[in-house]
């Protein structure tokens, strides 16, 4: 079988339409919204702030704590059970690992930076949208960062390598989904997961295409951040 036309008519390496906004939550120290297709991620950053419980404090450095949450009504008809689950716990952890390399929290011993990501509407690619939104929110919070972080899922549907899979493609029986987070200026990868099977050659192509796509996401992030502080 060949996958000649994508389900939503996109080109093979075309991203879904994106929009981003920074500073959406006034009470947070930093916040951002990132939308890609039908997936929406809202992110709030609090801190650095006092960390409790005290046993979690690290006197050598501040820590990063990520909370990823899909809202109950956000899925495909089926209610997502509220509260943390195995899935959200894993995604929170991989997000932390994806974002921590750009941060330097040495200046904030015993403190914590909290990231909360809520997804009111999802259509696959949530962890990538969440990372993209979180990077903007961290920058908005005024934290020192070596680089931004952009993330996108690439993958295989039947015989084709596509980027930014939607739910139909993501759940396709013959395919693979590879979320990738990239530091856009250095090209380093901070998140790489895979669900499904691909060959070595396909994997290389997936990473290349994901890196290309991340450049477009980076431009959206940059524009959103500059817009907030631009002279009116």
């Amino acid at each position: 079988m060949t996958y000649d036309k994508r389900f939503d008519g996109r080109k093979i390496d075309e991203l879904r339409p994106m929009s981003a906004k920074v500073g959406i939550i006034p009470r947070a120290d930093g916040s951002a919204m990132f939308q890609i297709g039908k997936t929406v991620a809202l992110c709030a950053v609090y801190g650095p702030r006092d960390l409790h419980p005290k046993f979690m404090q690290n006197p050598e450095t501040g820590i990063l704590r990520v909370n990823y949450n899909m809202m109950p009504f956000s899925g495909h008809g089926e209610r997502v059970r509220p509260g943390g689950g195995r899935r959200s716990k894993e995604i929170s952890m991989v997000m932390e690992n994806a974002l921590l390399p750009v941060l330097d929290l040495k200046e904030y011993p015993n403190a914590v930076v909290d990231i909360f990501v809520e997804l009111p509407q999802t259509d696959a690619g949530t962890r990538c949208a969440a990372i993209t939104a979180a990077a903007m929110a961290l920058a908005d919070a005024g934290l020192e960062m070596k680089d931004m972080v952009c993330a996108v899922a690439a993958g295989r549907v039947e015989d084709k390598i596509v980027v930014d899979l939607n739910y139909l493609e993501d759940s396709h029986e013959d395919g693979a989904d590879v979320p990738v987070a990239v530091l856009p200026n250095s090209g380093k990868i901070t998140l790489l997961q895979m669900d499904g099977e691909v060959t070595k050659e396909q994997m290389n192509e997936i990473i290349e295409k994901a890196k290309e796509a991340c450049k477009k996401i980076y431009e959206v992030q940059k524009a959103a951040l500059k817009e907030k502080f631009a002279k009116r």
Partner: peptide, 8 residues
Amino acid sequence: EIAVPGEI
């Protein structure tokens, strides 16, 4: 001008 993290 405004610069974002990682910008040259």
